[in-house]
Amino acid sequence: MREKWKIFTNGFFKDNPVLIQLLGCCSVLALSVTVQGSLGMGVALTFVLACSNVVISLLRKVIPDKVRIPCFIVVIATFVTLVEMIVEAFLPDLYTSMGVFLALIVVNCIVLGRAEMFASKNGVLDSLLDGLGMGVGYTIVIVAMAAVRELIGSGTFWGLRIIPEGYQIGIVAQTPGGFLVFGIAIAVLVKINNRRGKEYKPEIGCEGCPLQCADKSECQKEEAK
């Protein structure tokens, strides 16, 4: 039981997909503008992640290794389409505000990454827990960032005005603000880890990439140059 709990909570902080594994950054940066939107995104991603993890785990002995990436993509895309239709039908405002990012969950490195690194190698229950846990971790990060950006950038929280009109710093809610808040978040994390004596040097590179390129040696040769 304890192990199951461990798998579930792994994605919250210790192996957080966004801040530690540095996956799925595009959607976090783009959608962390309002708390409502970010929560919607978080839930959508968690749903897709959990479902696809389960299905891929179920099929893991069946999917041929050579074509596993396209197969994963088909499974993930199916669930994404499902979510798209649900959101469009029941939450049209959310659908419009998410724009193309809802469909982009299909190429979200977190989903593909967990499929490749966990679901294809573990049992169904474990995969479900992992998917849910990673999803929660993602949601925590995106909502936290959104809270900061919405509060400072628009003066509202969940659409409710907190800071009087005219006292917000608009740019935080726009593109530069996204990069800035994310950068500060990672810096804070580095500082915390340094204080604890743990080495944490985040780098976006080949290591985190779920694709595990066919010829990884080439990439590494490039990096080493």
Partner: peptide
């Protein structure tokens, strides 16, 4: 120190997007 590497790159990206 805390900003070395990725964080400062992100801040630079913020300024570039501006």
């Amino acid at each position: 120190k805390a900003f070395e590497g990725l964080p400062i790159t992100l801040v630079a990206a913020a300024l570039t997007s501006m």
